[in-house]
Nucleic acid binder design. Structure first.
Lengths: 186, 186, 186, 186
DNA sequence: GATGAATGAGTGTTCATTCAT
DNA sequence: TATGAATGAACACTCATTCAT
């Protein structure tokens, strides 16, 4: 269906040119449809954006929830989290870049799609990391580290990964990133 | 002078709303001048942006070059580099966010102000870090680490720092960041 | 039948929001159908309007022709005419407001439904009134009055009645209007 | 100044084609300017309309207030009121037709320019007429007439006059209208 | 009869920029 | 330096209408 064309085209442009830098004409041209069709399937540019954002956040959330929770070691959880993000950005580069992009100042988002999801995932990540770290420290698997700051630092790295500069997403980088945290924590 | 008002206003808006999300009217209003005055001092919106960008990159470059080069230990150089970025983002939050922001797709930049400076500083950073790491490893100050990937990782963290989320710029975060790299390298 | 729903909905909107202020979507929504169905039953918005107008003019014409012609007194005819209009606007408020509304500038009306009917009824009214007045004057039932101007004035009042402001359509207003003309003429 | 061109052009179109039937392009073409200039002088089509309406109502109000109040006879006041409206519609045909036109359904009028003025002038007229009629009856200048209904009837005629069909605005019509009311009241 | 999907032509509006002074 | 007035090009969006089924 052409609605999917629209979503694909819009996702591409929103991720690469930003919300303000993307025109409805660019989207419709790329999607091979006329502009009015955008307004048949969506109420406007804003809704196209928030729809895409919702999908992106939803995909991201599903991926996070799918993390293997039966791992024995605390570090395995952190390793899996890091590798997951390297995978995600390879699989959904545009969606993931939207997930970490700032809220477009001109976006009218009355249902708070942006803020709600953003907060939710940050909170999830923070609590996931905090739990891992505390458990690892308690079990003497990890050295004593400042939990809050360490979690913050990991989140900064994750954010940088999601912003994907392709050249950073190599096997060697994945390895080095995981090794770095292993060495630091244990 | 009113030109400075314009630059300050524009810097604020470009950093917070993006190039596409910033209108010339917003700039002139905030600067307390009329729109045509922008065109007296600059050739257009593009030039305002590139001018600001040049200053930002120049300030950044000056700061980088000012790094104390007489330190004995390789790690001190890395520590100084990290702390410098924490300081820079506190001092010039808007400029620094522009330094790490992607190139606006609509920006007409025939002199390649953006790309040239961007490449230059990335190169500088990379070579600075590579040299440090190699020297540290050679002098047995550092353990054996994959130089390229480690440099990359540090640059990712630096990039995340410059994007400044205020809450990450605490004394504890600075300490933790430095400590991690120390532990990791030595 | 759904065609009637369409006509009812359109009549309502054309009368209350005007031709230009009425969208085909508003009509189809109100009628509980989809827009393409309008084009199954009519050639387009214009034809919906002219169809409704034809009905309205036809109803109006039928009502006029039904005026009791066997009355003895000339004034009775005028009284009946006035009362008829008070009745009509109560019974068909929307239709009657269309009958006296100006021709929509954007209406494409190649068969001149609007102009033809408008002219026809104005002519009918004028001749009806002129005849009444002349007869009444000749029969000494009426004082000498300027026929043309009196007819005009009555038509102005009739027009104002049809534009119906509900509050003017009371028993007292009907009485007062009739009394006014009785006093004036006799 | 070109702002006046815009107002003149817009007044013409709003009065002859209605608010919904008037495009900003039609206005700017007729005014000999480009469309963006409309938005330099006004915030939008709505404000052009309300500005014109305010002027029209203001002119109308000034004219009403200027009615000679030292006339001895009650009927003179009514005669003057009627003649004033014949004059006004000759002098400001477009403005006056706007004064009695219904509120455009699509007009966004947050300051209630339309309703406020409309109500104000109807109230003024009503109280003016009521006072005249009561005084005239009390002074035995007028026969006993139902005050409220008579006032209503006069207002209906005034409204019809303002809607101006040119052919009704002749010396003979003016005379006939006044004569009828004189005959009716005295 | 009836509809979901789609469109050509506009519609009100914004924006970066220029002109005259 | 500085501005009020003005504009060309584009922008998000709407509308009457059509097509395929």
């Amino acid at each position: 269906m052409k609605k999917n064309n629209i979503i694909e085209a819009a996702t591409y442009f929103f991720a690469t040119q930003g919300f303000d830098g993307t025109t409805t004409k660019a989207i419709s041209d790329q999607a091979g449809v006329t502009e009015p069709l955008l307004y048949y399937h969506f109420t406007g540019k804003d809704e196209i954006y928030t729809t895409i954002l919702e999908t992106a956040f939803s995909d991201y959330g599903t991926a996070l929830k799918g993390l293997n929770k039966e791992t024995k070691k605390a570090f395995d959880k952190i390793e899996n989290l890091l590798l997951l993000h390297f995978d995600l950005v390879k699989k959904f580069p545009h969606e993931m870049s939207l997930v970490v992009s700032p809220k477009p100042s001109k976006l009218n988002d009355p249902e708070n799609v942006y803020d709600k999801n953003n907060k939710k995932h940050r909170k999830w990540l923070k609590s996931y990391l905090t739990r891992c770290l505390k458990k690892g420290v308690a079990a003497r698997e990890f050295k004593k580290v400042p939990v809050k700051e360490t979690a913050n630092l990991i989140m900064m790295v994750i954010s940088a990964i999601l912003q994907k500069k392709d050249y950073q997403n190599t096997q060697a980088m994945r390895q080095a990133t995981v090794d770095f945290w292993r060495k630091n924590l244990s």
